[in-house]
């Protein structure tokens, strides 16, 4: 993991979004640096997923800005780019791992094609290379190579989630967004996926925004933690500090509500 104090990779300023008169999220500010994992926690309806959509180019905010450090021009507001520019960014420098793998995968094409798709989308045309890259990634996410030509429909939840991760990481994105990546999985698979994500992030130096309501997952994966309630960030700081010495009343309640194992 290389994390230095250069320019932020993503800079979020005064970000707000409303659904009618309901607050989606309000006045959010934070930076993410290369190789850093930022966790976002909060109960259902606290605005975590809205925030993730806003910063990953899926939902245009009502106010504020989301700037990404583009390879050529530096920090640029992603909502002031043209649609094709933003699409290219989403296919190359970003990855999005959805809570429900079916939202992030094509269920009617093979696992190999799912993994290779992003390579084709950025112009790779050599089928043999795409196939060998895809099988590399299948191995990296610890899946059997013989599943390469199988359809995702035949995969278990944990396998689908790993396939989704491979599909996203193959273009070596610099920033990956993950929405509850371990939520639908049983604990043994969860631990395995955690280990996988942590290993990939630290080896490849990818920055990551992970939304989860699981504080245990956050303690092990994220460097910094942001706590949301009713669309607002009530507290943010070093993960272990927020969990061990929470300052905000809501965070104190949240942390003291964890059931010990």
């Amino acid at each position: 993991m290389t994390m230095s104090l250069q320019n932020p990779l993503l800079k979020v300023e005064n970000l707000s979004h409303y659904y009618g008169d309901q607050i989606g999220c309000e006045n959010i500010n934070f930076d993410i640096y290369n190789g850093e994992v930022l966790g976002v926690v909060g109960e259902s309806g606290s605005g975590k997923t809205t925030l993730l959509k806003l910063i990953s180019g899926l939902l245009c905010p009502n106010a504020g800005s989301v700037a990404f450090d583009t390879r050529i021009e530096g920090l640029r507001d992603i909502y002031k780019m043209s649609e094709p520019e933003r699409r290219l960014l989403m296919r190359t420098d970003w990855g999005i791992v959805y809570q429900n793998p079916k939202d992030g995968l094509r269920m009617n094409v093979s696992a190999g094609a799912n993994i290779g798709e992003r390579l084709m989308a950025i112009g790779n045309r050599n089928y043999a290379n795409i196939r060998s890259d895809s099988s590399d990634w299948l191995e990296k996410v610890e899946m059997d190579l013989e599943r390469m030509d199988h359809f995702p429909e035949t995969f278990s939840g944990g396998m689908l989630q790993r396939l989704q991760i491979a599909r996203n990481l193959i273009t070596k994105p610099r920033l990956v967004f993950m929405d509850e990546p371990t939520s639908g999985l049983d604990v043994s698979v969860q631990a395995r996926l955690l280990d996988l994500v942590r290993g990939l992030v630290s080896k490849l130096g990818i920055a990551c925004v992970i939304v989860s309501h699981d504080l245990g997952v956050m303690r092990l994966l994220s460097h910094r933690l942001m706590v949301m309630k009713s669309g607002k960030v009530v507290e943010q700081g070093l993960t272990d500090q927020v969990l061990d010495d929470p300052q905000d009343p809501y965070t104190q309640l949240l942390v003291s509500s964890i059931l010990p194992v």
Partner: peptide, 20 residues
């Protein structure tokens, strides 16, 4: 985080690591 990575080490009373 940078200080913790390079300068300041801490041994707590309990081991807390990713399983597996």
């Amino acid at each position: 985080l940078n200080v913790r990575r390079q300068t300041l080490g801490y041994v707590s009373q309990f081991l807390r690591v990713i399983p597996r």
